[in-house]
Design a protein around this nucleic acid. Structure first.
Lengths: 212, 212, 212, 212
DNA sequence: CATGAATGAGGCTTCATTCAT
DNA sequence: TATGAATGAAGCCTCATTCAT
């Protein structure tokens, strides 16, 4: 469809930084056994490095999650930015939602492990991560609320309570994405996204069917 | 509004079972410090019993959560049952949703601590609780899906994908309730519920405004 | 053959003292799980009494063993005394040994559980029981030594080192009895005893075959 | 007398394996306080290592005994093998017994602590060690029985019941050695062994006196 | 006498973290 | 940098013992 946002970060073409190797190993184990059931030893075993090496790159397990959360936010952020910058001013809103959903799904698919882990356990890692997750969630709600408020003011969508609507939408979408990642949803991803967008288009009084 | 469902179980109003005393103490500490950061000693200190006493009633911390989850499901179940049994056959659907929401809010308020804790950390307690939580969530989605499918077939609500719609609704409602419990939402609870119901009524093509 | 020594002790014809009920229950569990692996709770469960009741009769597990050891010594003592008192002055020594062996076997059979337990674990119960067991063992060796020394002096048996001979005999006989109780020996008990006596008769230069 | 069997195993004379250091420390404490009265902390204190270090080498106290028992069997085995390989075909049987006894006494003296501990408490450590001890004992009896049966068939020793004789001999010898290790026997070890062999030579109809 | 709920000292075991190589 | 043997603080859990009924 479009050129996707590029990841220019891990520059040296060859291999991941050892910090990344450790992070990925850690996330895999976190998913398998749960964060609190994971011992440093499990991580270094999966990463195939010595025990001391872990401490060369991270102070403790939480720091790994911290880095992972930052990565995740950055990736999602890049996607959202890209969508906003490339959205056609006079495109149908439903189409915009649909492409946004597709881009997000793609990004999530590329960050599956981090995504699953953060959704599942992020809140329970510890107070500092909990705070960051909460803040991030409310940040997303705020963004959505602002957009909705503008759209309502412009008469582009039905007038509803912008904050409540945002929470309903973000809450629902997050759950949809989560259960999709978890494999709890059998339908094809394109169907899933289309039906999800149709649901919220209906909520907002957009005549989705026109385009179908 | 109506007579609320009665709890005839813990008979004599006076003395909680010591298992309950321990559970409540445990939940309070879980909320304060997080499940995995809580030591048995924290629990027995809050419950004002000796260390061995804890093990007279529970095998470990997880078992407390298990009991708590069962309690929670039972309470929510009682509420949902009551609503279904007391719903007026020809009542406006929007009104039904609103009363259901109010009843649930009341039940949640009565089980605040358990609710907050389960939402926050349930998935991270351990694999067995994780499984139960997942199953419970999907059970709720199933229930909702069945109801929606019937309503759609009867032409009472707009035709959408019933499962996706259910997940959007349950996901959003759960988030709304969670953030309300967490105190992240400033609005008055009645407003909140009304606006939430208005959002989903709109999704389903119900003319909420009539009743407003 | 002869009237056996009578147990006039547990007088009241009806039932065991509760201390005995507890001791027997304890010994059974000791045999099943080992002394140190046995908890007071196992004992009172087998004895079908309340937890506090145990402490009405015994200060701790060791005291049960102590009582058991005293019982055992008394029973063996009664048997040895009876043999000595009823031995025919001019009987063949081999015959004397054989009837002594038979009486002891009978007594051991009547005190199987105590016997097995004491042989197996007596030494490991604790220092005080260990001491008593050791002393008892050496007491038996002394008795045997005295008898042998007399018999050697009287020319009734071959001249050997009386103490070493006693230790060889007591050591071997104890092992024979132990493995018989444990069921490690398949032969008929009469054969076993006869062969055992034949072995030691041979050691002492008694012509066992005459009587066979 | 002869070159003794060499221990080529723990190669460089200097540093015991830390597992051995721990085992020796453990055995010393076991002897002092008894196996079940010994806490891990006693062992690591004697071994002068940190608490965690113990668990680097053993899963628990029982595993130490297991290793010790294997060692012990190996040492005794090496001695028996050496005796069998170096026995002079036409040597007097009594002489063979005497040298065997001396070799065993030497081996036991080199493994005093393990020997005392295993004799005293081996059976009471736990079911798995109990089984191994029992099996080992019966293995020794079997070996002795086979040898005796051959000797009886060849007319080298008096015809007696081979199994019963073996049990008498092994049982007695074990006791003799045990009480010697325990210091319960005052006589000089050479006297002790000579008298013991004289006793069993007499049992088997060997004219020990010839050689004396 | 008999009971069993409650207790807390005691010992086990894990695992994050250090540090000498 | 990288390693992994060694450590000991921390928390779990058991179980002997008490005591109010």
């Amino acid at each position: 469809m479009h050129e996707t946002p590029v990841n220019n970060e891990s520059n040296s073409s060859k291999s991941l930084d050892k910090a990344d190797v450790l992070m990925n190993a850690a996330l895999e184990v976190f998913l398998e056994k749960g964060f609190h059931q994971t011992r440093i030893e499990d991580i270094i075993a999966k990463a195939k490095v010595g025990k001391g090496t872990f401490y060369l790159y991270y102070k403790n397990k939480e720091e790994v999650v911290d880095r992972c959360l930052e990565n995740f936010r950055r990736e999602i952020g890049k996607t959202l930015t890209w969508v906003h910058e490339n959205v056609n001013e006079d495109a149908d809103l439903t189409d915009v939602f649909l492409s946004e959903a597709k881009m997000l799904a793609e990004t999530l698919e590329n960050n599956q492990i981090a995504g699953k882990f953060l959704f599942r356990e992020g809140r329970a890692v510890g107070p500092s991560i909990d705070k960051k997750m909460s803040d991030y969630y409310l940040e997303l709600v705020d963004m959505s609320e602002n957009t909705l408020a503008l759209a309502m003011a412009a008469g582009l969508v039905k007038k509803l309570h912008p904050r409540v609507s945002s929470m309903c939408i973000i809450g629902g979408v997050v759950q949809i994405f989560y259960h999709w990642l978890e494999g709890d949803i059998s339908s094809d991803v394109d169907d899933l996204l289309r039906e999800t967008v149709r649901f919220y288009s209906s909520s907002l009084g957009l005549e989705f069917e026109r385009g179908a």
